[in-house]
Design a protein around this nucleic acid. Structure first.
Lengths: 217, 217
DNA sequence: TAGATTGTTAATCGATTAACAATC
DNA sequence: TAGATTGTTAATCGATTAACAATC
């Protein structure tokens, strides 16, 4: 029985994302069902953890002897991960990274719709990237308010990150995807996800040196 | 006493990265020492966990009543995280994201030196970004071998990711920083760090909805 | 039917937290 | 000296793993 209400840990969440990927791969290879053992083997996990994780997300239960229906499982997981309900977002700071993210088609699959980019550089304003307009930074606050945007992607230089964050919070933003190295000060009810290149890089080089325990990912 | 040898968990590692950031901030504000309680308060952690984490990295011990010397602590942490020893890397796939990463000055601070980009698009070849050459994809294997490169940054389209990975492995690469959505098949002795936009995005939107447990980060 | 696999409960393991002696 | 803070040991908590009855 899926207890879909209680909050889950990040570890569970990350594993569920892994399952989705692998299941999509299996689907394209023509498989129709999968067992917890097969899933666990493929991703070097314990079958028990797989069964417990799946119990958090499934509406369509698995069948003893048969396993889980791959189509239904992908459906349930993607619903759970929120790929289905589209979310509007603004992007602030249209440098190289900002441009790359605005041009990334893949976000639509995951339900993210960047409605516009904002930049303080006048020469960039009114250009378009991937069919999305670049607007002057001065219009950020009113646009977020008027369109009731919940999510902001932050790709400004580090020294402007906090100032922009303060504007976003005043405008009522609920979640910030932070690609700058700045440590943002935000109220508790604003979610922040730090996309920290430096930390990721450090993780990689420590794995290389064997200082970090082997994790399943 | 720092037992600097035994492998640490990813959770510890991430927290230590957080400390480094916050300590650098405190340093610029003119502080000289810090206590585990102050550090814990600022990052919403338990003082015990801070003390234990720091025990993994410190050479210069803290002083009772005084706390830790900020300069020494930053020094020890950065050594531990590997910011000091420079690592050469190649970048494969010079699209928008690849260009953004090649142009990102910040990597040098963390000891990553991208020596060149590689791309199969002839029109891009021999251009320069941030003083770094773009070379033809055909030269990737020999360059990695000849220069004895350990780290590769993968920013190709998804459908080329595995093919490039196979070449990199053949060339003797030790670590891959994967920015594509592909799930790479690699031998056990090759470290892979997935920089997964889709997962990060999903984490953010679930935090927004309160499905995810609050974590300290 | 017999055996594989599910969902779930109980046992184990590791990480977090609390407590405390040592000490500046 | 007295009190704050360290480093470390013991207690608690949560997550992972193992075991097993239910069942297709």
């Amino acid at each position: 029985m899926a207890n879909s209400d209680s909050p889950i840990s990040l570890a569970v969440f990350n594993r569920i994302s892994l399952y989705e990927r692998w299941l999509c791969g299996m689907k394209t290879e023509g498989y129709r069902t999968v067992s917890s053992v097969a899933l666990a083997d493929a991703l070097s996990l314990n079958p028990s953890v797989v069964k417990k994780d799946l119990a958090c997300v499934i509406v369509n239960e698995g069948k003893p002897k048969v396993g889980y229906n791959i189509d239904e499982l992908i459906e349930d997981i993607e619903n759970f991960l929120g790929y289905k309900n589209t979310k509007d977002a603004v992007l602030v700071g249209v440098g190289k990274l900002g441009q790359a993210l605005m041009g990334y088609q893949g976000f639509e699959k995951y339900g993210l719709n960047i409605i516009a980019g904002f930049d303080s550089d006048e020469t960039k304003v009114s250009q378009e990237i991937n069919g999305k307009k670049i607007l002057p930074a001065g219009k950020l606050e009113s646009a977020v308010k008027k369109l009731n945007i919940n999510i902001a992607i932050l790709t400004t230089p580090q020294d402007q990150a906090q100032a922009v964050t303060d504007i976003l919070i005043k405008a009522g933003i609920r979640a910030i995807w932070n690609f700058t190295p700045a440590h943002l000060k935000t109220p508790d009810d604003v979610a922040v996800k730090n996309e920290d290149m430096a930390v990721s890089l450090a993780v990689l080089s420590q794995q290389l040196k064997g200082i970090l325990k082997k994790e399943s990912e």
